[in-house]
Amino acid sequence: MKAFIFDLNGTMINDMGFHLDAWHNVINNDLGGSLSREAVKKEMYGKNEELLVRVFGEGRFTLDQMADIAMEKERRYQQVYLPHLRLIDGLPEFLEKAYQQGIPMAIGSAAIPFNIDFALDNLNIRHYFKAIVSADSVKISKPHPETYLMAASLLGVDPASCIVFEDAPKGVEAAANAGMQSVVLTTTHTAEEFAAYKNIIAFTDDYTSPALASLTVA
């Protein structure tokens, strides 16, 4: 049985620029860093705590301090992004068609539940998803395959039958490590940045692309 697994940020909602702004502000203005926007962008994968360790090194912050920093960053992101919150073009229709076809769907994201709930509940789309895997659900984040393998298991489908929708190279790598094919949304990275990956079946700016139409055919 075919199944769809969606990353969230940059894949269902085009918000990665807002995350970048929030992290750039927190890292440089709150924590005394001196990273360019491009340098921050390269670190934006995996769990928030992992990002802080990559930028500032082991031992700079306690786990509780990192949790507080991450939550403050997410509050700022949500406050600024909320007026702009919407699904990427074509996704409402794509989700509804897949739902009507009985295709099981899941969220497989490195976001914390606070941000996943923010998107799903404000957009009223929670009912489409039979499973949600967040940063809090896994021990090892992308590009490790745990996120996507857990989503497949919760859906009760073979990983090889899953199509992953992603916007980031590390996410596509996670899908490859899970034995899954990927559709890449070019909202955050260019197609050229995915040249190393062989599990990509389509690149698209949004969900109106004819290349995606066949995916929801019963």
Rank of each mutant, 00 (worst) to 15 (best):
A3H: 09
L8A: 04
N9R: 01
G10W: 05
F18H: 03
D21N: 06
D21R: 04
A22W: 00
H24N: 03
H24Q: 01
N25V: 01
V26F: 00
I27V: 11
D30N: 08
L31C: 00
L31D: 00
G32W: 03
G33Y: 02
L35D: 00
L35T: 00
L35C: 01
L35E: 01
S36D: 02
A39K: 04
K41N: 04
K41H: 06
K47E: 01
E49H: 04
L52D: 04
V53H: 04
V53D: 06
V53R: 06
R54Y: 07
F56W: 05
F61K: 07
L63Q: 12
Q65G: 08
M71Q: 11
E72A: 12
Y77K: 06
Y77F: 14
Q79D: 13
V80Q: 08
L82N: 03
L85H: 04
I88Y: 03
I88T: 04
G90I: 07
L91F: 04
E93M: 07
L95I: 03
L95S: 01
L95D: 02
E96F: 01
Y99D: 08
Q100P: 02
Q100L: 09
Q101T: 05
P104N: 03
M105A: 02
M105K: 03
S109D: 01
P113I: 03
F114N: 00
D117C: 02
A119E: 01
L120H: 04
F129I: 11
A135W: 08
D136R: 13
S137R: 15
V138N: 10
K139R: 15
I140L: 13
I140Q: 14
K142G: 09
P145V: 14
E146L: 13
Y148A: 11
Y148D: 09
L149V: 10
A151I: 07
S153P: 08
L154D: 12
V157Q: 09
D158Y: 11
P159N: 12
P159G: 10
A160S: 15
A160L: 13
I163M: 11
V164T: 14
V164W: 09
D167R: 08
A168W: 06
A168L: 11
A175I: 12
A176M: 15
N177Q: 12
G179V: 10
M180I: 10
Q181C: 12
V183A: 11
V183Q: 14
V183G: 13
V184Q: 09
T186C: 14
T187D: 12
T187Y: 08
T188W: 09
T190P: 09
A196E: 15
A196W: 11
I200G: 14
I201R: 15
I201G: 15
A202P: 13
T204R: 14
D206A: 13
D206C: 14
D206H: 12
A213M: 10
A213P: 07
A213V: 14
S214P: 06
L215A: 13
V217W: 07
